[in-house]
Amino acid sequence: MLSALISAFRIMICEIQTNLTPMGEIIQMLASSNEKYSGMFFAEVSKQLELQGVPYFTRCWKTAVTFCCSALTSTEQEALLTLGNVLGRYDAAEECVSIERCIMELNTGYEALRHRYQTDARLYTGLGLAAGCILAIVLL
């Protein structure tokens, strides 16, 4: 989910910087993407926007974070909530800086997760090999 959100936020930056696309349109575009996890998150934001209206963007964003991002750490969720307070309220440059900051936070989590998976993968490979060797010795 982290990598999907990071990719989505990079698209968001491009849309804001290049086309000054309104936030509602960006959310809709990301909601209809094929990416399962980020698509689900932005679809929830879009649904909430329809229900509550654009003036309540921050509240809609917060609801979507609560519903769809429970798998993320509290730091990552906090980064997303902080971003929700900024989106739609400032000029393009300021918004892009905030999105970049959020991407950095998510990326830190993503890298830590990736590192843990790699370490775990090595550990489990080692354990598997060791177990195999022991089994072979026992059988012999």
């Binding site: 309104p22 509602g24 654009v54 003036p55 739609g88 393009a92 918004e95």
Partner: peptide
């Protein structure tokens, strides 16, 4: 007034700045 302005900009100050 903030409500009206936010609605009018489609929740996107950057688009209407």
């Amino acid at each position: 007034i903030d409500h009206i302005v936010l609605s009018a900009t489609g929740g996107s100050y950057h688009s209407a700045a």
